[in-house]
Design a binder for these strands. Structure first.
Lengths: 181, 181
DNA sequence: ACCTGAACACCGTTCAAGT
DNA sequence: ACCTGAACACCGTTCAAGT
């Protein structure tokens, strides 16, 4: 069921995923879906958390926690941009809060702590990193650049922008961590 | 017409703004709206660009261009968070591209240039700033925190987070500008 | 447990016609 | 220029009933 929903999504984008179309693709009456899914919202939440399972999560004990954080965010960015049709859904929910999302958040916290960020500053740093990553994924998958330029931004250029901004953010985080030590 | 749409929006959020409800609020048949508006999408675009006119735009010749950039982004953040119902729409379009959006982008570019950012780096820096600002506005207006924590983030804490992350980003931008000089 | 038929309360939008 | 009546092609969801 989730698989069929995902197929519909990649084929036609967010607006193509309706319960009725999903049902017809499964050769079934529209209401039959409600034997497998509690609501469309729930279906979308499941879809989103499923995607997050593809993120490559570095171990919490990585030698270089900052590099591991960069890898984690970059992998998240890659997974999101590889599934452009899901990114708008992500934004609409302001990030998922399924099991995988929680797991990723905890891993980030562990790495931030090992990078020297004091406990008080961990949620803050985590949020800035998440906002940067999801925001940039939205930016690079969107048809319309948000900056008023005429041409859409090329995927690889967006990726480079993401990486550069990520370095800035990480540098700020570790610098603050050093200052408070 | 725009005013009535905005009222509906603040009263009931995004999902309350339907053409039919808007029409009934104006005591008019649903299709009568199409004498004033080309489509619902266009109506939303107009609404979004209208909001951007409220942003406090510092002069391009400000003595301290970095401080002016910080002020511009902070004002944008304030305007967005003051109208939470519009932020999801913003995300769905990945930023508006109306006249006001273009104007703000140009002002940002001028300030970035005066801050010493080389021409090649201007669009990149602009995008990182925009992503950070809109992303954080989404984060703090959203009912669900994206980080898996149980309680929603308090508005003032989100504002502090935004400001801290903004400092990190700006620091990275000026440092790179200095390195390339 | 899983499906169907029928229905409810909605959507955005178009078309022809009226003033 | 602005409005209406009527319609089209959709939505998500529920309810009762069947197997």
């Amino acid at each position: 069921v989730l698989a069929a929903a995902h197929e519909l999504l990649v084929a036609g984008g967010v607006e193509a995923l309706t319960m009725r179309r999903l049902a017809s693709r499964l050769d079934v009456a529209p209401n039959a879906l409600y034997s497998h899914v509690v609501s469309k919202t729930q279906l979308l939440d499941d879809l989103l958390d499923d995607l997050l399972s593809q993120v490559d999560t570095p171990p919490a004990e990585a030698e270089d926690p900052v590099a591991a954080l960069a890898a984690l965010m970059t992998s998240t960015y890659a997974v999101l941009t590889a599934h452009p049709s899901l990114v708008p859904l992500y934004l609409a929910r302001q990030g998922a809060r399924g099991a995988n999302a929680v797991r990723l958040g905890e891993r980030m916290d562990a790495l931030l702590t090992r990078a020297g960020v004091p406990d008080r500053g961990v949620p803050e740093a985590r949020r800035v990193l998440i906002v940067h990553t999801i925001g940039f994924a939205a930016f690079s998958t969107g048809a319309n650049p948000a900056d008023g330029s005429a041409a859409p931004v090329a995927a690889e250029e967006a990726g480079r922008n993401f990486a550069r901004g990520l370095q800035w953010v990480l540098a700020g985080i570790v610098q603050d961590a050093g200052a408070s030590r």
